[in-house]
């Protein structure tokens, strides 16, 4: 795909240091970066049960491979799709509210995007063009395997270009290229409840949402300030949707929060293990919680991207050797590649 990712690959992309662990996911970037050759090998994340062993899609983006006869279009049965579709419609009607749904077992472990995959499977049609990113990257194992999963089970076209995609499944980044009205962004969500680490009981958090009782969340942000002098929450930064529900934007870096506000694209969120679906309709107000004297601010980076040289973008720290060598590169691989192509 790109020079970077062909090179003897650093094991993990790194990500923002503060993002590691904590949220019940073992580190944010799953696995290693897949080199180009991996596109044609069985994806390590899929246990590859027999029915999934269709003909490997010959060319990524070709989208012509036929789905195995033993599976329904996009893997899920029609009854499951109807159930998920009904949940999605209610989620859209009540922006930011978490709709319970009967999450199914998927052929991948919880934490690898089972919620996002079920939402994608429920909305996907034959004419859709699918892009999947993992921390902004199109070429890491999680992204590659989910893209191939739908290329096989639905035969849809796939792409790495943000502008060409109609459905973008994402694990914790919002693409840099501006989204458009024809696009749907599907988030993989580990813990959908923004109040969960403040109040462990679902019965209580449900009441708090019903009463719009969000004082506890403000106390948490205030405690950040009293301890660190600033709001130290850097990812899964709570937002208020359409002036009513407080929502977890999934563990995206808070750098991406402003992109959710007034976004032309439809944003859908699926949490498989926690069995919740929620949504932000297009052109909806999404406000990051803050205080008058401590306004919301995104991260800034002092260095430019080591590959494209651009400043002001979200960067990953990549360890390049065992002697302390490291580089900072754009997290959004498509945007980075586009900038480098334009520069040539």
């Amino acid at each position: 795909m790109s020079d970077t990712h062909d090179s003897p690959s650093p094991l993990c992309g790194g990500g923002y240091p503060a993002q590691q662990g904590e949220r019940g996911e073992p580190g944010l970037r799953i696995g290693r970066r897949a080199a180009d050759g991996d596109e044609l090998r069985p994806a390590p994340s899929l246990p590859s049960p027999d029915p999934l062993r269709g003909p490997p899609s010959p060319v990524e983006g070709g989208g012509k491979s036929s789905a195995p006869a033993t599976y329904n279009f996009a893997y899920l049965d029609e009854g499951t799709k109807r159930m998920i579709r009904r949940a999605l419609l209610k989620a859209v009607a009540v922006p930011g509210y978490q709709v319970p749904f009967a999450s199914r077992e998927m052929p991948m472990p919880y934490g690898w995007g089972t919620g996002g995959v079920q939402v994608t499977a429920a909305i996907l049609g034959r004419s859709d063009v699918l892009k999947v990113i993992d921390q902004g990257a199109d070429d890491t194992t999680n992204a590659v395997s989910i893209r191939r999963f739908f290329a096989r089970t639905a035969g849809v076209a796939t792409t790495t270009r943000t502008a060409e995609a109609t459905v973008i499944q994402t694990r914790h980044r919002i693409p840099e290229a501006p989204l458009t009205e024809g696009q749907t962004l599907v988030y993989q969500v580990p813990i959908p409840e923004p109040l969960r680490f403040l109040e462990p009981r679902e019965t209580e958090t449900r009441q708090m949402h019903a009463l719009a009782e969000y004082g506890l969340m403000h106390v948490k942000l205030y405690e950040d300030i009293s301890r660190h002098g600033h709001i130290a929450t850097t990812y899964a930064y709570p937002v208020e949707v359409a002036g009513r529900y407080v929502m977890d934007p999934s563990p995206t870096p808070k750098f991406d929060n402003p992109k959710m506000d007034d976004c032309p694209a439809l944003q859908l969120f699926g949490a498989g293990r926690e069995r919740r679906i929620y949504a932000v309709p297009p052109y909806t107000t999404v406000r990051s919680l803050d205080f008058e004297d401590h306004p919301f601010r995104v991260q800034t980076f002092s260095e430019p991207c080591a590959l494209c040289g651009a400043k002001g973008h979200y960067l990953d720290e990549v360890v390049t050797d065992d002697a302390g060598g490291r580089m900072f590169v754009c997290s959004d691989t498509d945007a980075c590649e586009t900038r480098r192509e334009d520069a040539r």
Binding site: F73, R85, A93
Partner: peptide, 20 residues
């Protein structure tokens, strides 16, 4: 075509509700 007809109807309804 139960699979694709239902999907087409659902997407129309989803778009309608998402963009009143």
């Amino acid at each position: 075509d139960p699979v694709h007809d239902a999907q087409g109807v659902f997407r129309a309804v989803l778009d309608a509700l998402a963009r009143p």
